[in-house]
Design a protein around this nucleic acid. Structure first.
Lengths: 215, 215
DNA sequence: GTCTATATTTCGATAGAC
DNA sequence: GTCTATCGAAATATAGAC
């Protein structure tokens, strides 16, 4: 089995990903056979959902027999958890790396732009992250839930700072935080490469979020 | 088998629905056994997804044996299609009924408020509508896709009218249309009754959409 | 129209050879 | 570490009695 992902330092923002998950994103997963199984699982889970994906399908995409999967992962759910944990950490890291501006307005624009572009660029991973939570075991779900709270807090803090210094006119802080997050997250549902450049979409959504907070 | 839903005249906007789908929404499905199967399927599909739901689970929620399901529906997929078709028609009807204002601003606020509140109020049905499209047969998917285009057009027309008369400042019309729709649709993913009143959420989202179009 | 019983297929996961 | 072969469970859907 590949090593568990406990730390996450490499930024994945901007890495090119086609309709099929690029192995570049999963370079740290070793050996190569484990990585092929994982990228096959990402594509299959994103296309058909966890429950509709068979271990035979995953193994087939990796060019292996069904039994070989279990040399690298103890179960189908564990494969999902590895993807979900890495994806959540990647999304959080994108936000933290983007929180750089000197004003709440600059910070919000940067956060929304990066978070949105990530969901477009990595829409296959993002689909698994956002729509397959119910298939995780209770213990694994609890682990990714802590990362999800950190993601939400990252947005909420910028909005709170902007309300405090008068940059933003927001009356319902939790509701507006959820709405801003929600707008970016839903990109994973509908995005396909033919719908445009992820960076351009990020800029549009930064504009929209900027307007949403009354600036 | 229950009669196919070819017409849709009864507004369901504002009908009360608890965590378990209210039979009130499905009064037109006859006989009662077919309706119990359908509401059980809505709840099961919304909770676990189509693929993770077994025909035994649906029949059990209806208080029947697994075999009894096939007297009323020829397959599990047909049950999904009936729900999806009705749900899409309901969402479209909610939009059409809400497009009443005399100015683009009033119309947009009314549309977003009603569409958002519907996704909150009927979040179990809405989850099936928005997240189980991939489980439909190609023919059935094509049928609901025409309704989805009508839903999108309803929003886009109001935005176009507002741009034309100077009410709205929108440069990317398709992108902003998708974003406004997307914001309401994602409510189905996260909404639970403890998150607040659907009508209040509708008003908040009307404010946010109003700001998004630069008004 | 609902039941019990079951046909048939396919699933996740394992055993054991190499 | 990958294979072939297969186990045991569970799935959708059907048959036939009542």
């Amino acid at each position: 089995m590949p090593k568990r992902l406990l730390s996450f330092t490499r930024s994945v923002h901007g890495v090119n990903v086609s309709a099929v998950t690029s192995p570049l994103v999963w370079e740290h997963v070793q050996p190569a056979a484990a990585r092929r199984l994982l990228t096959g699982a990402v594509d299959a889970f994103a296309e058909r959902g966890f429950q509709a994906t068979t271990t035979r399908d995953i193994a087939s995409r990796a060019g292996m027999s069904p039994a070989a999967l279990y040399v690298h992962y103890p179960s189908k759910e564990r494969l999902l958890f590895e993807i979900s944990l890495y994806g959540h950490n990647a999304a959080l890291e994108v936000l933290r790396s983007a929180d750089t501006g000197s004003t709440p307005t600059d910070r919000l624009r940067s956060l929304v732009s990066a978070f949105t572009a990530w969901h477009a660029q990595h829409h296959t991973i993002a689909r698994v992250v956002q729509y397959e939570l119910a298939a995780l075991s209770p213990e694994h779900l609890a682990e990714v839930a802590t990362i999800r709270r950190a993601i939400s807090t990252q947005i909420e803090q910028v909005l709170a700072d902007g309300v405090h210094d008068g940059s933003f006119a927001v009356t319902d802080l939790p509701g507006t935080t959820l709405a801003v997050l929600s707008l970016s997250i839903d990109v994973a549902r509908w995005y396909t490469p033919h719908r445009g450049d992820p960076e351009a979409l990020g800029k549009l959504y930064a504009d929209l979020a900027h307007r949403m907070v009354g600036a």
